[in-house]
Design a protein around this nucleic acid. Structure first.
Lengths: 214, 214
DNA sequence: ATTTCACATGTCAGTAACTGACACGTGTGA
DNA sequence: TCACACGTGTCAGTTACTGACATGTGAAAT
């Protein structure tokens, strides 16, 4: 962030993002027009679309950051951990560092509000699930490489990640529909839900090529 | 289907649906406009929207039928089967009867083509995942009632269904990206994938209130 | 310091998915 | 045969998005 130009761009983007999330979380996503967002950020509608591919893109800008952070966490997990254990530690790590991850863009409180808005807006929930599917594919390849198996012939990486993702989504949903919107709440929910499904696919794939680990 | 009016409506709807799926699967969903569909069915654009809530709705009209059939199968599963076993049998039943389920609306071949189109079109995949999530919620309540547990306090129904749904999605994806588009193929894939995750949550919830069954 | 140029932005026109209002004509039931 | 309910077409309007072009303001070279 050196030149004046870059700083201006940064401010414009931040301004648009904040305006968007603020409007989405207060009036609802569907009832917010791009024109409104642009006006709130004091730019033209066309400029909004130069910073974000679409309305949806703005809604997920912060989620993108946390997702990237989660992926980074997975990558740095020690090799001796089983796949499921590595994923478990990575999510929890992600929640622990959520403030630092997010605060550079928007206040955590706004991020959490947006999280709930996504979950309660059909169009955004759909987008969220599709994005999650894409992330799961990335993680599956990561785990496959890490465990030294071929993701195209061995279904276990994708299955493990699918199971994991399923648990995460149940957790998200329960947190959003509950009444305790604290970080501790979602962190604790994540941990306990993962424990319930623990027995599934926890084994080390490198040991035996065959069937059920455990 | 008695009066002439009703028969006319039926034919219009069928005409629109066929035109839509045919165009979606050949030119792609995004490159097909509602105007095109309406023209192919020889009605006005406005009429299309009187039969379908939107473009997306037409794309999922047949999926709706199979989904309903699957739910019906789940409901008629004998009580002695464990939740996972009941779900497993219900999906396989669903695939076995797919011809009869679908043929009244469109040829199975068109249904299968549309299935792949959904999987390979981001917007439709997103919608599909959201719809799946809704179905999973329904199934979770079904299983909870069937097993005599409270879905609002006991997370096991939703977790089991989430795991199950995850496996189904991996299966769908693998089938769509593979080269064998036969019914047998997807049926067999479903069965073998479910076997791999078998150990998870297979127990009978009614037996003990506590932790890991099995 | 001036000039030159690249780049961020605004304006405008156009497309496509919808939605509401109204008018028309055809089956339907009396 | 009459009255009307209902399916349909037309038209106007909204919103998300895109391409083309013009303009003005920073950045870099002289």
């Amino acid at each position: 962030m050196k030149t004046l130009r870059e700083r201006k761009k940064q401010r414009t983007r931040e301004s648009l993002l904040r305006a968007a999330l603020e409007l989405f979380t207060t009036q609802g996503y569907e009832h917010t027009t791009v024109d409104e967002i642009a006006e709130a950020a004091d730019v033209s509608q066309r400029t909004f679309f130069r910073y974000f591919a679409g309305k949806e893109d703005a809604a997920f800008a912060v989620q993108d950051m946390t997702e990237q952070h989660f992926l980074a966490c997975v990558r740095t997990r020690p090799a001796h951990e089983s796949p499921m254990e590595a994923l478990r530690q990575a999510v929890l790590e992600g929640w622990d560092a959520i403030r630092e991850t997010v605060e550079s863009a928007v206040p955590v409180e706004l991020y959490l509000r947006m999280y709930r808005t996504i979950e309660s807006t059909p169009a955004l929930l759909a987008a969220h699930l599709r994005r999650s599917a894409a992330t799961e594919e990335t993680i599956a390849r990561l785990l496959a490489e890490r465990e030294g198996v071929d993701p195209d012939t061995d279904p276990r990486p994708r299955l493990a990640v699918a199971v994991f993702g399923g648990v995460i989504r149940v957790t998200e949903r329960q947190w959003c529909t509950g009444e305790d919107f604290s970080l501790e709440s979602i962190r604790q929910l994540t941990a306990s839900h993962l424990d319930l499904v623990g027995p599934a696919l926890t084994g080390n794939w490198r040991a035996s090529g065959a069937g059920r680990p455990d």
